[in-house]
Design a protein around this nucleic acid. Structure first.
Lengths: 208, 208
DNA sequence: TAAATTCTCCCCCAAAAAGGGGATTTTTGC
DNA sequence: GCAAAAATCCCCTTTTTGGGGGAGAATTTA
């Protein structure tokens, strides 16, 4: 018997998941919560195998709660749930310890499969094909201006901690040039400084 | 019949995958390549459903090739392969269009399951439980000095592009304090500046 | 070939970060 | 309760970055 704990700020969603899961063999509900604080407190009192965790919570982001739960309850396997299937979310959920991802429109069979899969120690991902066949929601939405080859090269060196002068020496150009590239990237990507630039770049795969 | 194309710079690995896949029902090899350039050229000539793509290629990173293939051949589903199961890799592969992840030590059954799964439009992930149950392979290796709660808080704000002064205002302390935290983190983590700090932090899961 | 883009370099100046140092108060762990 | 760790704050100087601007050479692309 696998015990499942549900976290979602929408009571209707919680009820729906609850009724679906309770009808499934081998699964039972150990508890539910509507926010992060209640989740942490309740998890201390009830034994739970799987945490169904909504990504969009009111008081704290799903990612943060994900980390908290993993730190305090390392045995609990986390299955992220959300209404939409965004690549960036999924990758971040995985990076922060989730064992799987489920869209809210998933069928009872899918939920069952998801729980079974992650209890076997594997990742489970639920996504529709149409979303996946697009290159990336972020990249192809037109928001991301593309950096030039040289800019990416400079960016790479910046992320390694080199200063403009050091990069200039490596690329045999003037420090002013590197400075211009850096500034252009900051403007292009609409970030406030180098720190934010590096973060943006990594999160969008601009850096190796 | 699903056609599989293999990309890996190790011929032994390619041979191994080849022989395993050819024994499986419903799968056949449409081609193999040992580098990125050959991959792009060959994919133009042969019909391929699934691309088995090694993450660590000599001339170009698997991530980059992943993006290239998805742009030029959007119908091809990419299954990343690697010798080790690193969370950061997996999340980045997914963010860049891979439909799944397979460790090289995977059994024939797993390979078959992986191809079948992604042909159904779902993500497939192959990972051992022991790796997943650890917070992060890097963090628990002892190499990483742990940041304090406050330092992480400051780090988070730095990554959002805030300056010392702005962070100080948010946390109701003096800018000097934030400056000290920043310097301490740079020293602790042995990086040269804030850019490198942010990169390090993201790659080690210190930032949300 | 003409137009657009990219790459290159420079100016100014203000702001921020880095690299030293030291020092006090709070919290935390034993 | 005491020691260790964390958090707070300040001094100094130099280096680096950021925000403007302009502008010519090289390379792509239409």
């Amino acid at each position: 018997m696998t015990s499942v704990f549900i976290v979602d700020d929408h009571p209707i969603v919680v009820e729906g998941l609850k009724s679906v899961i309770e009808k499934l063999d081998g699964l039972h509900i150990s508890g539910v919560a509507y926010n992060a604080v209640d989740t942490i407190n309740l998890l201390k009192t009830v034994a739970t195998d799987v945490l169904l965790l909504d990504i969009n919570l009111p008081d704290i982001s799903g990612i943060d709660l994900c980390k908290k739960v993993r730190n305090q309850f390392p045995h609990i396997r986390i299955l992220g749930i959300s209404t939409f299937s965004e690549r960036s979310y999924i990758s971040r959920m995985i990076a922060h310890g989730a064992m799987g991802y489920l869209i809210k429109s998933a069928s009872a069979e899918e939920i069952s499969a998801a729980v079974t899969t992650i209890m076997q120690g594997k990742l489970y991902m639920s996504l529709d094909l149409e979303h996946l066949l697009r290159p990336s929601p972020v990249i192809q939405s037109g928001i991301l201006p593309n950096l030039t080859k040289r800019e990416k090269e400079v960016l790479q060196h910046i992320s390694e901690g080199l200063t403009n002068v050091q990069i200039a020496e490596k690329l045999f150009v003037s420090p002013s040039t590197i400075d211009t590239h850096r500034k252009n990237m900051i403007t292009k990507l609409e970030v406030s400084n180098t720190a934010a630039l590096i973060r943006f770049a990594i999160e969008h795969g601009l850096i190796n």
